[in-house]
Amino acid sequence: MANSDAWDPSFPDKLLRRHENYFRFRSMDLRTDVRLLHFQLRNIMGCASRTAVYYPCVYGTVRRLDPTTGHVKTAMRFETENDASVSHVSGRGGHPHYRQFPWNISPTVALRRKMSPAAMTETLTDHASGITNHVQVNLSRRSSTPVAAFASNDYGFRMVDLTTNKTTLDKMYDYALNCTALSPDKRLRVMVGDSQNVLITEAETGEILQSLEGHRDYGFACDWAPDGWTIATGNQDKSIRIWDARNWKNSVAVIRTEMAGVRSLRFSPLGSGKRLLLAAEEADVINMIDAQTFDSKQTIDVFGELAGVAFTNAGQEIVALSSDPVRGGVLCLKRCDFGAEDYHNYSHRRYSRDRWRTQGYDWLPTPHQVVDHAGSEVTLTQKHRQAAMAEDWFF
């Protein structure tokens, strides 16, 4: 919308201080073959692990890069370069699932399984505008089977059982959906799209439960935090809004971005240390926001259009994909504040913005609760080792 990102003193948007230091540079693998085919869709990088980064290539293939060694190999290939255009890449458990859309024929889903680079294709919709804008892969709440949730440009939201390739939900909305995120308990889903409002829906039926107002333009990014109630949405109005699932009435915080609207949002995983919100703008700027107070951040300035960001290695690293044809590639950042939670009192609490918050670093009040949680990616021994490494580094 025209001038939706223009600043006005009446807006609640807050530009955060840039004085934090959560991550530092680890490596940059220059890649001149990254292909960005859509100026709005910036989730074309998938991380299955710290040694497996997937991205679409200019030669009609999807490639796998190991940032630790620099080795590159073909993960998926199409018969010709014009067969398909990759709009989203997602990876889970070492088996990435790809969404591709041809420009001139019916959209299809392409999946790579096992070790074969050949693509398996299934038709998802026959609509001429059935471009898939976003895919989220997760395990079903009622079973251990993987499920893919597709947000499409034809106003549709679809869920596919990846073990049978059967569509389990096909629901239409009033506008195109650009991003969705599932709650940790897998009961609710947040949706943003070609509307100023944010939708909260029932995860399995798609029924709209809440419509949240506040943004001034269309939305392209959202995520749900591991604590179960913190939600972030990013829109083209150059704002990130933080919502509390325990009280939908008003947003908890409104954060103004540096240069452009946010295209990717990622909360740090449970067990990774201080809670953070990773927010990548369209180009040049990656923000690491303090997700405890939402009043400060670290900003990394890069060169080029950002095609995707992700936490990896249990949240101890960040991988970002720049699609600049000359200086682009895969940027890796390493966390430098691990172990810091050992120097803070987890029992201290304070009341702020109509909600209780722990002063601790992670998404749960104590380290023992963190490591005992089913969604945690670390053990208590690992956290103690990280703390010891921090002491050795600083002392």
Score class of each variant (00 low, 15 high):
N3P: 06
A6E: 13
A6G: 01
S10D: 09
P12F: 07
P12L: 08
N21P: 09
T32Q: 14
V34A: 01
R35G: 03
F39H: 02
R42S: 05
N43L: 15
C47M: 15
A48C: 15
T51Q: 12
A52Y: 05
V53I: 15
Y54F: 14
Y55H: 10
P56L: 12
C57Q: 09
Y59Q: 15
G60V: 08
L65G: 01
K73E: 15
T74N: 06
T74W: 03
M76T: 09
F78M: 10
E79R: 13
A84D: 00
H97S: 02
R99V: 11
W103V: 05
P107Y: 08
T108L: 00
T108S: 04
L111M: 04
K114Q: 06
A118G: 00
A119Q: 01
T121H: 10
T123W: 05
L124A: 09
H127P: 07
Q136R: 10
N138C: 06
L139R: 09
L139C: 07
S140H: 09
R142K: 05
S144D: 13
V147P: 00
N153W: 05
G156D: 10
M159V: 02
T167Q: 15
D170L: 01
K171T: 02
Y173M: 03
Y175T: 13
A176N: 04
A176T: 14
L177V: 07
T180H: 00
A181S: 05
A181Q: 05
L182M: 14
L182I: 14
S183I: 03
V190P: 00
V190T: 02
G193D: 05
N197L: 02
E202L: 13
I208C: 06
I208R: 02
S211V: 10
H215D: 07
H215V: 08
D217C: 13
G219R: 11
W224A: 01
A225Q: 06
A225P: 04
G228Y: 04
G228W: 10
I231M: 06
I231A: 09
G234M: 12
N235Y: 12
W243Y: 10
V252D: 00
V254F: 02
V254R: 06
I255G: 04
R256M: 11
R256V: 08
T257I: 02
S264V: 13
S268F: 03
P269K: 10
G273W: 12
L278A: 11
E282C: 12
D290S: 01
D290M: 10
Q292V: 12
T293N: 11
D295C: 13
K297Y: 03
Q298C: 07
V302M: 08
A307I: 09
G308I: 11
V309L: 07
A310Q: 01
T312Q: 07
N313R: 04
A314H: 12
Q316Y: 02
Q316M: 05
Q316F: 11
S322T: 08
S323P: 11
G328A: 03
C332D: 04
L333H: 09
D337T: 11
H348W: 05
H348L: 12
R349S: 10
R350H: 12
D354S: 15
R355W: 07
Y361K: 00
W363K: 05
P365H: 03
V370G: 09
V371D: 09
G375N: 14
E377Y: 03
Q386H: 13
A390K: 15
E391G: 04
